[in-house]
Design a protein around this nucleic acid. Structure first.
Length: 474
DNA sequence: GTTGAGCGTT
């Protein structure tokens, strides 16, 4: 964001125009930190637009008033939209999501540094950053085949504070060259879609591996099958890729899962309801998720419906939000444990355990609950909470934060009552996908009451049914 | 031709 302050979007540029030309041209208005001409990733062909970043945002005013002709073309200079802005176009809030998701809540000791000049050595790199704190590691990435610098690298510090200091500015000047810094994505949290297949195995709810846990769901009955969900997500909104989470792919899956496995998910969820910062600290991944979904309308919907689509491309700029948004959603379903926690908030205790498919589902309710709580339209949180409880009970975990754990019936009751449960669940929910699921599988879902049982079962059922949905979709 | 790409190694 700071970096976007002095950033101009330059549209309609000639295919002949290069970064150098842009820089040369705009330098007349003030110090240009960076220029970029966007090209098609595959063909390398210029796409006809680019960006210019001025050191001083104030010069934009002047620049915007003039007409610019570069390489014989009259170009169109506008303030650059932040990535968040461009994807959500309508709601204008770009702040909260960004602050949280963007990594504000995540503490890390590693920084991703982009825009490295090819000539930069690790030493030069290190020397500069040492002024911010103790540098423990420096990495400049090279192409494995060509051995050419890839233009980015990493720098690790021994304290998060140093990182914070570095991140005060997005652009840093290393001997006249500009580099851009961002928090490094936790690589280990990103197994990548393919990878090994289910290490997880663990029957219990979460399955083992983070990401794999997902697929693992297979364990629990197919009914659980994540794929379904993903479809559902996608269907609802857009989402693209074939990934379960629909999203970005990058960190998303890993994030969500990781935490949940660890039980951290819990904390995350709690925050959901409470939105407390503290939790964020505890678990980066989650925190972000929750918050994002929470604070940002777009995200929220995303979370709900899933994918904010866009996932992939916005990954960098708003990785938190988008990916997380999904997660919020997605997690719920899987993580029984989480669910419980969520509801109660902190609760969490039990985490991973509750293992049955059912339980898992119960959780889901939970996840939703969180949302619901936040947004009136969704319904009654308590109702949801109940669900969580219900599930918790069976699994034998006491811990559900919310309260009374345990009582299935009551739990169920809550569930049903809530907007969610009620008959086809349509009402308050608002999510068509769900609704349709419900209606299809309806039985259990909406099932009344006898409560708890009905409720839970319902979940399972719903899911199980899902597959058919999938079929339909295609 | 008009709103972005980049995230690791040992």
């Amino acid at each position: 964001m700071d970096s976007d302050q002095g950033k101009l979007f330059i549209g309609g540029i000639s295919w002949e125009t290069t970064e150098e030309k842009l820089k040369e041209y705009f330098q007349g208005y003030g110090d240009v930190l960076q220029t970029v001409v966007m090209r098609d990733k595959i063909s390398g062909k210029p796409r006809g637009f680019g960006f210019v970043v001025f050191a001083d945002p104030n010069v934009l005013d002047r620049v915007l008033q003039d007409e610019h002709v570069i390489d014989g073309r009259t170009v169109d200079a506008k303030r650059a939209l932040s990535r968040e802005e461009q994807q959500g176009s309508k709601s204008g809030n770009t702040n909260s999501a960004r602050n949280f998701g963007g990594g504000g809540s995540t503490r890390t000791k590693k920084i991703f540094v982009g825009g490295l000049p090819p000539t930069l050595t690790e030493d030069g790199f290190r020397q500069y950053f040492e002024s911010f704190g103790n540098v423990t590691d420096v990495v400049i990435m090279y192409d494995q085949q060509t051995n050419r610098p890839r233009g980015f690298g990493f720098i690790s510090f021994d304290s998060e504070d140093a990182v914070d200091r570095v991140l005060q500015k997005t652009f840093h000047d290393l001997n006249g060259k500009q580099v851009e810094v961002k928090k490094a994505l936790p690589k280990d949290a990103n197994p990548g879609a393919g990878g090994r297949s289910m290490s997880s195995g663990g029957g219990s709810g979460m399955g083992g591996g983070s990401y794999q846990g997902y697929g693992a769901s297979g364990n629990n009955a197919s009914s659980y099958d994540s794929r379904m969900d993903s479809n559902r997500y996608m269907q609802t909104q857009n989402a693209g890729g074939g990934y379960p989470y629909g999203s970005s792919g990058y960190g998303t899956p890993g994030y969500g899962y990781g935490p949940s496995n660890n039980g951290m998910g819990y904390g995350g969820y709690g925050s959901y309801g409470g939105a407390n910062p503290g939790y964020a600290g505890a678990n980066p991944g989650y925190g972000a998720a929750a918050v994002a979904a929470y604070g940002n309308p777009n995200a929220a919907s995303a979370g709900y419906g899933s994918g904010p689509a866009g996932g992939p491309r916005s990954t960098w700029g708003s990785q938190g939000p988008s990916g997380y948004g999904n997660m919020g959603y997605g997690n719920a379903p899987w993580g029984a444990a989480n669910a419980g926690g969520g509801g109660g908030g902190p609760a969490s205790g039990g985490s991973g355990q509750s293992p049955t498919g059912t339980t898992g589902y119960g959780n889901q309710g939970y996840g939703y609950g969180g949302y619901a709580g936040n947004d009136g339209s969704y319904g009654n949180q308590s109702g949801y909470g109940a669900v969580g409880r219900a599930s918790g009970a069976p699994s034998g975990n006491s811990p559900v934060g919310g309260g009374a754990a345990g009582d299935m019936q009551s739990g169920a009751g809550g569930y049903m009552n809530s907007g969610y449960g009620d008959a086809s669940g349509n009402s308050s929910y608002g999510n068509s996908a769900w609704r349709s699921d419900n209606s299809q599988n309806s039985g259990n879902y909406g099932a009344p009451p006898n409560g708890a049982h009905g409720g839970q079962v319902g979940y399972g059922g719903g899911y199980g049914g899902a597959p058919s949905r999938q079929a339909q979709q295609q």
